[in-house]
Amino acid sequence: MPTQIVVAAAVICGPTVLVAQRVRPPELAGRWELPGGKVAPGETEPDALARELVEELGLQRGDIAVGERLGADIALNEKTTLRAYRVRLLRGEPHPRDHQALRWVTAAELHDVDWVPADRGWLEDLAKAL
Rank of each mutant, 00 (worst) to 15 (best):
P2E: 13
T3E: 08
A8R: 15
A9Q: 00
C13A: 12
G14L: 03
P15Q: 14
T16V: 08
V17G: 02
Q21K: 05
V23R: 13
L28N: 05
A29I: 06
A29Y: 07
G37Q: 05
V39Y: 02
A40I: 05
P41G: 06
G42L: 11
T44K: 08
T44F: 11
T44A: 12
E45G: 05
P46C: 12
P46Q: 13
D47F: 09
L49T: 02
R51F: 09
R51I: 12
E52A: 14
E52N: 14
V54Q: 11
Q60N: 14
Q60L: 15
R61E: 14
R61S: 10
G62P: 03
G62Q: 15
D63G: 06
L70I: 10
L70W: 01
G71V: 01
D73T: 02
E78T: 14
T80E: 14
R83A: 09
V87G: 01
R88F: 06
R88V: 10
R88E: 13
L89N: 04
L90D: 07
P94K: 03
D98W: 10
Q100C: 09
A101Y: 02
A101Q: 08
A101F: 03
R103S: 10
A107F: 07
A107Y: 05
A108G: 12
H111D: 14
D114Q: 15
W115F: 07
W115P: 06
V116I: 15
A118H: 09
R120V: 14
W122K: 01
E124M: 04
D125Y: 03
K128R: 15
L130A: 13
